[in-house]
């Protein structure tokens, strides 16, 4: 399976993602934002970081960069595109997934482990994962998911909510919402479910000596689903 990780000026989780993808069998290529052509890929990842210093709005500049035209074409033709953290912010700015990510409700940069409940397994990302709840890591200042009432209805009707913040038992109460996101939303799909944007970092959970292994579970499952 071939993957591509896009590096923007200010990306800082691109190499972590490269390590994670390779560990679970992807042949990964790093792609510079100013390239026009996307290499042949089964999965494209927009990594976390602070692309363009978060100027104007997080992800807004990166969403207009040269490579994004190819990424958008790839996504619109059914290609698998995953945006993590700043990558999620870039995805919403392109309009590939609905909504926006606002400043966290309590104005704090949040860096901690969280639990997320898988809301929809009928897709290539989460199909065949036995767990209902995964432990991932978040590190963001603008992860407060917001959308209009009409968009929320559409997202819910199309089952586009991928994961919600919860406690370790999968309870998705407001008290387990770290950043003020509507309905505890931590990640969403596009309508067709080939595009996934999420704030948590699975690539930070691939080594038991450093963290947990729920990221390993995620990537292992993903590559098997893609085969």
């Amino acid at each position: 399976m071939k993957s591509s990780v896009i590096t923007f000026p200010g990306s800082n989780c691109d190499r972590d993602m490269d390590v994670a993808l390779k560990k679970f069998g992807f042949k990964n290529k790093m792609v510079w934002h100013n390239d026009a052509e996307l290499p042949k890929s089964d999965l494209v990842v927009l990594p976390g970081g602070f692309s363009y210093g978060d100027y104007l709005r997080c992800g807004s500049m990166a969403s207009k960069s040269k490579i994004m035209k190819s990424v958008i074409n790839f996504a619109n033709s059914g290609g698998m595109v995953m945006g993590i953290c700043n990558g999620f912010q870039i995805l919403v700015e392109t309009g590939l997934v609905p909504g926006v990510l606002l400043r966290n409700k309590y104005l704090e940069f949040i860096c901690k482990n969280v639990y997320v409940k898988i809301n929809n397994k009928q897709n290539t990302y989460f199909n065949n994962i036995n767990n209902e709840v995964l432990k991932f890591h978040i590190a963001h200042n603008e992860g407060n998911y917001f959308c209009t009432k009409d968009q929320l209805k559409e997202i819910e009707d199309n089952e586009q909510i991928a994961i919600n913040y919860c406690d370790k038992n999968g309870k998705t109460d407001e008290q387990f919402n770290p950043n003020g996101s509507i309905k505890n939303i931590a990640g969403i799909f596009n309508k067709e479910k080939n595009i996934l944007g999420m704030m948590p970092h699975p690539e930070r959970m691939i080594d038991p000596s450093l963290s947990g292994e729920d990221g390993s579970l995620f990537f292992n499952n993903l590559i098997n689903n893609l085969k």
């Binding site: 104007l56 709005r57 807004s60 207009k64 700015e93 909504g99 926006v100 606002l102 917001f146 959308c147 209009t148 968009q151």
Partner: peptide, 8 residues
């Protein structure tokens, strides 16, 4: 196209 995000 860039300066405003019309969702918000």
């Amino acid at each position: 196209k860039l300066l405003a995000n019309l969702v918000i």
